[in-house]
């Protein structure tokens, strides 16, 4: 309960500050829609020549794209702004103020703000999702719904852990912006089904940058391609990655306080 209350307070203040920048929202929306057009268009052209590509139909690929936008939006809305802020604080040595607060440091540091106007991509994702499911005339029953919710939740947890590890690395290596660039580039590839890539890239996208768990599996769940067994695997992966990254964060924090003391 206390956590929910805190979150409400954090988010209310950041929404109030963001109101100023609402023009940003429209720019983002236009940019997202155009980016979406590029991806769908390129898929549509390729699908003209082949009805199914590696077992994916155009509709299913669109569901995947929808999940990509949804995830991208969620990351930019909730996760990335906080993580970037922590990286800055570590670099400038102002993280001390956060450590001093009588709440769980990890929670306080990683959920402090949100970037409300990045909601543009979330909306685009949801819209495309509804459209693609309608177009596929898929029946999304309670089973698919539940599996989607579970795998999407796990995906979010995996992304969160991934970023937390990245941030923790800043305790040792001050400059991580380049690494962030590389990771976004890898994430971009998640616009398309992982199956179209060569084997080595598929492995990378499953284990190194876990696009597989973040996008491909939730999208598969929604379009009925993923069963409970895969969902169970993604939950296990999520739990393990949150636990490990949290341990790593605490280890990093110890190193940080030890070094600056």
């Amino acid at each position: 309960m206390r956590i929910l209350h805190l979150l409400a307070v954090f988010y209310r203040t950041s929404i109030q500050t963001d109101i100023e920048y609402r023009a940003d929202f429209f720019t983002r929306l236009v940019a997202s829609l155009l980016g979406l057009m590029t991806t769908i268009g390129s898929l549509a052209i390729a699908f003209q020549y082949a009805g199914r590509i590696r077992g994916w139909s155009l509709g299913q690929a669109m569901v995947l794209l929808a999940v990509y936008y949804l995830m991208d939006g969620l990351i930019e809305m909730f996760i990335a702004p906080n993580m970037r802020e922590i990286m800055n604080q570590i670099r400038e040595g102002t993280l001390d103020f956060v450590i001093l607060k009588p709440i769980n440091t990890q929670f306080l540091a990683t959920f402090r703000t949100l970037n409300i106007w990045r909601m543009a991509n979330v909306l685009v994702g949801i819209g495309l999702c509804v459209y693609a499911i309608g177009g596929l005339s898929l029946t999304v029953g309670p089973r698919e719904g539940a599996l989607f919710a579970i795998t999407l939740g796990s995906g979010c947890a995996v992304v969160y852990s991934f970023w937390l590890v990245l941030v923790t690395l800043t305790f040792w290596f001050i400059r991580m912006d380049n690494l962030e660039q590389i990771i976004w580039q890898a994430f971009e590839t998640g616009r398309y089904p992982v199956d179209i890539y060569p084997r080595w890239l598929q492995i990378t996208l499953t284990y190194v940058v876990p696009v597989m768990f973040i996008i491909t599996i939730p999208a598969g769940a929604l379009s009925g391609r993923v069963g409970p067994d895969t969902a169970a695997v993604s939950v296990v992966v999520a739990v393990v990655s949150v636990a490990l990254s949290s341990c790593f964060w605490r280890f990093g924090l110890k190193h940080y306080t030890g070094a600056s003391a």
Binding site: L43, A46, F47, A50, G51, Q185
Partner: peptide, 27 residues
């Protein structure tokens, strides 16, 4: 940073290639 910028330009063509490779195997 320069190399990363440069590699940025690789991703697009490689992804396109992957799509067309996959499409051509289907045909």
């Amino acid at each position: 940073a320069m190399v990363i910028w440069g590699v940025w330009g690789f991703v697009g063509p490689l992804v396109s290639l992957a799509i067309w490779n996959a499409a051509s195997s289907a045909r």
